[in-house]
Each structure stands twice: as structure tokens, then as C-alpha cells.
Amino acid sequence: MSKIFKTPPTKKVEHEQHILEKLDDDILKVNQIRHDFTSNSTHSLDDELKIDSDEADKNWHIASEYYKNIDTKAFRQYELACDRVKSFYEEQHEKQTVAYNLQARINFKTKTRDRMTIWQGLEKLNKLLDESDPDTELSQIDHALQTAEAIRRDGKPRWFQLVGLIHDLGKLLYFFDSKGQWDVVGDTFPVGCKFSKRIIFPESFKKNPDYVNPLYKSKYGIYSKHCGLDKVMLSWGHDEYMYHIAKKNSNLPPEALAMIRYHSFYPWHQELAYTYLMDDHDKEMLKAVKAFNKYDLYSKIDQQYNIEELKPYYLELINEFFPNEIIDF
């Protein structure tokens, strides 16, 4: 253009140049779309699920359209649950005392129950049927993969996908030194303060010795107003156990750790009980837990994935966030 114009281009020419540049950009976009479309049939599963990482990190808390329209009333039907589920909660509510929870935490800090990889732990869970869950009778690794794959399908960040895979890994407690399933699975709740009526089957707490303890039956109990859930002792089980394992051994972000620790704390993240114990940090973590809960609860379907086909992808994911291959459980 410099050979033609000895003076700066007119506004008309500048406008025409702008149009040509925009047209060129549009053509590049069309060609890219055409390339993506024609090569779609040969893409691997990883390519199909790959999205811009910045967008994934930015929008990870936004629910997909599928989970916005799902019939939530079809899940957690405890009033219609079988006797196995009801009996479980009666035992859990009677035995989850302050004294037991203190001892459980001492045991955790002073014992190494086993040493293995994360994947070996997942395979071990195949032998467990969760007696507290009214929504599924599939193996634990099936549920783990269902949850992780649902999160992966929606293009959520890789750390979010890993939470889906390992959120129930703490159920390994059942094979170690648990007293039964009552101190491994089921909804969690604070001990050391008044039991909320928003906990499932609240009447069964009357058999718990802490129910009549003058201190433990008060609203705040051994805690204080807005002390923060980090200072609250939640009923011991797979959530607390895996939270401490992940906190010690992984580089997962705080939101991921909150998802692991609180995903069974339904009285809080679903019924909004115990808000008077929350601090500002908990308000942010609540958003993360609610974002994860949709995948944990509503991914429980009859579909089973081919474990061996998915294994390489998730081994890579595990290695990314757990630097040490062998974990002390």
C-alpha cells in the first residue's frame, strides 16, 4: 500500500482495510469450525472433552443445563428407604459421641493403616456396599467413576474431576479399624453442640449420651458463634478421614478439600443448618460444596463404565495432584 499512497490512507481506505481484516478473521474461524467438524469422528474421548482451561477454571461452579432440570425429589427418599438404611442411622446417631470422635482423631494421628496408591484404594472399595445410601447399590468404584465422568463431561477443571473420583475414598476406613459402617458412611453432623432437627431421622439422637449433656445439648456447645467450621468436630467418617489424607498428601485447592470434607454434611449444604457456626471462608466453600453435590448425588444411575478404558486418564490425573505415588492411609 505504501507504493500506491504517498499520503496516509483516507478514512474510506482505512474502513475497507478493516473490513478485509475482519473478513480474513471470519474465514479463519470458519475453516477452524470446518476442521473441527470433519475431524470429530476421529477424535479421542480426551479431545472431545477438552475445553479452554481458562473458561473451565472460570465457570466451574456453574451447573450444566442437565442438572438445572433434574428431578431432585427422586433422590434421598429416606422416608421410603429400606429397613437397612433406617437401622444404620439409628446406630450412627446413638454412637457418634464427642468421646468417640476424640478417640477416632487420636487413632488417625497415631496410626498408619495401610500404604498404597490412590488407584489401589479405589479397587479395594469394590468390596463395600454403603448401607446408608438409598439411591444406589453399585460398587464404590462405579459410583466414583460415574461422578468423575459427569464432572468431566461438563468440562470442569481437572482438580474438580479428581474430587469426583476420590471423594468417597475415605470409606477405606471400613476395612481398617472402624466399628462398623456407622463410623464410616452416612450424613455427617457436628458433635459437641445441639443436634439439629434438620438431620435425617433426628429422633434417633435421643439414645445418644450427648443428647442430655448440659453442655453438648446447648446451641453452641463447645464452640462459639461464627467460629468457623474448621474448628468444628464433625462426626467421624470417610469425609473427615479423606479430607485429612488429601490435605496432607495432595496439592488440591481449598475448594476441592471442602468438597471432600463436607459432601456428606447435608444438614449444612442442603438444609442450611448450623449457619451460626460459619465464618466468611465457609460461605465461599459452601458454593463449592453445592456445585459438587449435584454430581455426587444425581450421577447415581445404572450405567457402568469400562474401568480399564478409563484407568490411564485417571492415573494421569491422580499423579498430577498427588506427587507421591504411595500414600499412608
Rank of each mutant, 00 (worst) to 15 (best):
M1R: 12
M1K: 11
I4W: 12
H15L: 15
D24P: 00
D26A: 12
I27M: 09
L28W: 13
V30G: 00
Q32M: 11
S41A: 14
S41R: 14
S44K: 10
E48T: 14
K50W: 08
K50A: 11
D52Y: 11
D54L: 15
D54G: 07
E55T: 15
K58R: 15
W60K: 03
Y66S: 10
Y66R: 14
K68H: 05
N69A: 13
D71N: 14
D71Q: 09
T72F: 05
K73R: 13
A74Y: 06
R76T: 06
Q77G: 05
L80T: 15
K86N: 01
S87Q: 14
F88D: 01
E90P: 00
H93M: 03
H93G: 02
K95F: 08
V98T: 05
A99M: 04
Y100H: 08
Q103H: 10
A104Q: 11
F108N: 02
K109I: 12
K111F: 05
R113Q: 05
I118C: 01
G121H: 05
K127T: 15
S132G: 01
D142S: 14
D142Q: 11
E149D: 07
A150M: 11
R152L: 13
R158D: 15
W159H: 06
F160S: 02
Q161E: 15
D168Q: 12
L172Q: 10
K179D: 14
V184G: 00
V184E: 00
V185A: 10
C193N: 06
F195M: 06
I199H: 07
I200Y: 02
P209V: 09
L215E: 09
K217L: 04
K219G: 03
G221W: 02
K225T: 05
C227A: 06
L229F: 15
L234Y: 04
Y241K: 01
I245G: 00
A246N: 04
K248F: 03
K248L: 06
N249E: 04
P253M: 07
M259V: 05
M259Y: 03
H263G: 01
S264V: 07
P267Y: 00
A273F: 06
M278C: 11
D279W: 05
N293D: 12
D296C: 14
D296F: 14
E308W: 06
E308R: 10
E309V: 15
K311W: 04
P312L: 10
E320F: 07
F322L: 09
N324S: 14
E325L: 09
E325V: 10
I326Q: 07
